[in-house]
Design a protein around this nucleic acid. Structure first.
Lengths: 342, 342
DNA sequence: CGCCCGTAGGTAAGCGCTTACATAACGCCA
DNA sequence: TGGCGTTATGTAAGCGCTTACCTACGGGCG
C-alpha cells in the first residue's frame, strides 16, 4: 500500500518491490532471456499485486515496434466495412496488435494528413481500403517501403500487396445461375462505374450472357452507385421496361435492397414474379425477406488475409507481398425462381 | 541528400541541418516558447526539406499525453455505431486526436483485456459504448480517475459522465403522433428489454396511450431485440391479430425495416394500410421506400458531445463530468397516415 | 584441474522527444 | 550606469522501456 502519487506504476516499482534489477522484470514480462523459475514467480506475483502494466509508448520507443496497425477507410457506413473490419480485428487480436482507425470521409486532404500522422511512428503498418481513385500517396508508402496492404483495391493498376475478390467470376456466376433457371431477360444494376470491381462484375454479367447466346441489351443495364436509393430507382426503370425483365442482378446487396422495395412497390413478388440476385452477402442479405440470393464476397476473410499479409510484411520486410484474389461463391437463398411463364 | 540509413529522420537531424539545438527545433515544431522569426523560418524550411515528422511515441512518452483516445464498442454492425463514430471522429479531428478502436464482440473477457492495454498509456481517455450490462471494469476507471465517458449508457444506475438521448420522451412522442393521426390500435415492437433505452421507449409508448385513454393491450406489445429478423417476426404476429393494429411503433429503425417486409409480404401497403414508425433515424431510414417516419436520436451529436466532454475531462481532470441527455425529435416522412377507415 | 559453455541477472546506453533551468544579449528605467 | 525584465537559445534531465554487453557461478569434459 505504499503509494506513489496516484500515477502510473512503472517497471522500477516492480523491480524494487521484487528486489531485482528492472532489466530482469522486463525479461519476465516479455518472456525473453534467462530468468530462474523462482525469480519469475516472484516478479509475476509483484506485477499482479501492484498492478503493473507496461507503458506501450515507452516500449514502442525502445523496441521500435508499436504493436499497432492503422486502418484507413473512406467511411464506416456500410456493413461491407464492418465485415472486413471483423476479419482484421480477429487477426489482430490473435497477434496482440491494436487498431488505429482513420476515416477519410472521402476527403483527399484528410488522407494525406493521415500519412503524416501515421508515419509518425505510431503504427507498424497500414491497411488501406481506398475509394475509387488509387490515391497518390500510395506510391509514397511503396517508396519508403512502409508496410501496407490494400484491401479490395478498387483502383487501377496497382502492383503492391493487396487482397481482393474474383469480381468478374462472381458476376459471371450470378448471371449464369439466372440463365440456368430459365431467365433470358436479365436486368443489371451496376455499381459505381469508377470502381474496377463494379466494372468487373458487369463484364462477368455480359460475358455470361454472350456465352449463352443472349446478346446484352443496353436498356437492361442501369448505372447504379452501390447505394440503396439508386438501386430503387434503377429497379423502377427496369420494371417500367416492356417487356419487363424477369430477373435482376444488382452489383451489391445494398442496391438489391433498393430493388426489393421497388419490386414490392410495383405490386410484384420477389422471387415469384421477379428474381433478384445481389453481390457481397453482407449480413443483412440473409435477414431480409425473402432471404436474398447473392454472390458471397468473403469480406471477413479478405480483412483477415490482408491482416495476415501485413503482419508478415512487418515481420519480414524483405518479403514481397503478393496480390491475392479470394474466390466469390454463389449463395442460393430464396429470391430467385424460374421465370413465371416457365 | 545526405542519407541516414533510410530510417526515420529525427529532430536531431533537423537541428544539425538548421544549426540550432534540438530544443529549439522542438519549440518551433510545437509553437511554444520564444523563437526568433528568423530561426523559425530556417527550421521550418529544413523540416519541410528533409521531411521531418515528430515521433508520436516519443512525444507521448516525454509529454505525458498521447493525443489518442480509445473507443470501446461491442461491434460495428449497425449504422447506429457508424453515426456515433462520425460524430466522434469529427470532434477528434478538430482537436488533432487519433482514434484507437477496440471491438469487444460482446465478449466480456475481451473488454477486460482492453482495460489492461488501454491503461498502458496508449490513450489519454476512453469513450465507451457498452452493451447491456454496465461492465464491471467501469468502476475501475472511475476509481483511478481515468478520463472516460459513456455513450448511450444502456446500463443501470451509473453516475459518471455520459451522454444519451431522451428515450422515454421519444417513445411518448412517436405514440402520440400516431394517436393524433387517429390510430387507436397501435402495436409495439420493443427493443432488447435488458437495455434501459428499450424499456424507456416502451414506457413512453404506454404512457402516451394512457394519457389518451387507450388502455395498453399486452397483445399489442411484442418483445423484439433491435434486429431485423425479430422485427419481421414481431410484425407478422401483430398482423395476425384480430382486429389487426392500424399502426406499429418499432423501437428502432432496423426492427422497423423488418416490419416493413412483413407488412408488404402480407399484401398490405405501408402508410396506406398500416402506419409504421421507427426510432433512431439511421441514414437508411430515409433511403427505404416509403421513407420511414421515425424518432430521431441525434447519434452524430451524441458522439460529438461525448468526445467534447472527454477532451474537456482530459484537459481539466478536476472537472466532474455531467450526465447529458440530448433531445430526440420526431422526423415525419411517409410511412404514417391516418388509419384506413378514417 | 583448467576451460568453456549454459544459465542468471545486473549495468547502462539509448529510443526521440519535452521542458525546466541556465545563459546571454539587449534595451530601458530609475 | 547598475539592475532588471524580455527575448532567444542552449544544456541536460528525464519519460518507461528494451537490449547489448558484462559479470558470476556451476558443471562437464578433455
Amino acid at each position: 500500500m505504499s503509494s506513489q502519487p496516484p500515477g502510473r506504476v512503472t517497471i522500477e516499482d516492480v523491480a524494487r518491490e521484487a528486489d531485482v534489477s528492472y532489466a530482469t522484470v522486463s525479461r519476465v514480462v516479455n518472456n525473453k532471456g534467462y530468468v530462474s523459475e523462482e525469480t519469475r514467480l516472484r516478479v509475476n506475483e509483484v506485477v499482479d499485486r501492484i498492478g503493473y502494466v507496461v507503458n506501450r509508448q515507452a516500449r514502442g520507443l525502445a523496441g521500435g515496434k508499436s504493436q499497432v496497425i492503422g486502418l484507413v477507410v473512406p467511411d464506416l457506413d456500410s456493413s461491407y466495412m464492418s465485415e472486413i473490419i471483423r476479419g482484421i480485428d480477429s487477426e489482430l487480436a490473435a497477434a496482440s496488435y491494436d487498431l488505429m482507425l482513420y476515416t477519410t470521409r472521402h476527403r483527399q486532404n484528410r488522407e494525406s494528413a493521415h500519412v503524416a500522422t501515421l508515419t509518425g511512428g505510431m503504427v507498424d503498418g497500414l491497411l488501406l481500403i481506398l475509394p475509387t481513385a488509387s490515391s497518390e500517396y500510395l506510391t509514397t508508402f511503396r517508396e519508403r517501403k512502409f508496410p501496407c496492404v490494400l484491401i479490395d483495391h478498387r483502383g487501377s493498376n496497382e502492383t503492391g500487396p493487396s487482397v481482393g475478390a474474383t469480381n468478374y467470376q462472381g458476376g459471371y456466376d450470378a448471371t449464369r445461375y439466372l440463365i440456368e433457371l430459365g431467365h433470358k431477360r436479365i436486368g443489371m444494376i451496376t455499381g459505381n462505374p469508377e470502381m474496377v470491381c463494379a466494372v468487373d462484375r458487369l463484364k462477368g454479367y455480359q460475358q455470361a450472357l454472350r456465352d449463352n447466346n443472349i446478346s446484352p441489351d443496353p436498356d437492361l443495364i442501369r448505372t447504379g452507385n452501390f447505394y440503396q436509393p439508386r438501386g430503387f430507382e434503377c429497379a423502377r426503370e427496369l420494371l417500367s421496361l416492356n417487356p419487363v425483365p424477369t430477373a435482376i442482378f444488382a452489383a451489391n446487396d445494398v442496391s438489391a435492397f433498393g430493388a426489393m422495395e421497388a419490386i414490392r412497390d410495383s405490386g410484384r413478388r420477389i422471387g415469384n414474379d421477379i428474381s433478384l440476385i445481389g453481390f457481397d452477402d453482407i449480413p443483412a442479405a440473409s435477414n431480409v425477406y425473402p432471404p436474398l440470393t447473392t454472390v458471397r464476397q468473403p469480406l471477413y476473410e479478405m480483412g483477415a488475409t490482408a491482416t495476415r499479409m501485413l503482419l508478415d510484411l512487418i515481420g519480414n520486410p524483405a518479403r514481397k507481398g503478393e496480390r491475392v484474389l479470394l474466390p466469390t461463391s454463389l449463395v442460393i437463398r430464396d429470391s430467385c425462381r424460374p421465370p413465371a411463364g416457365q
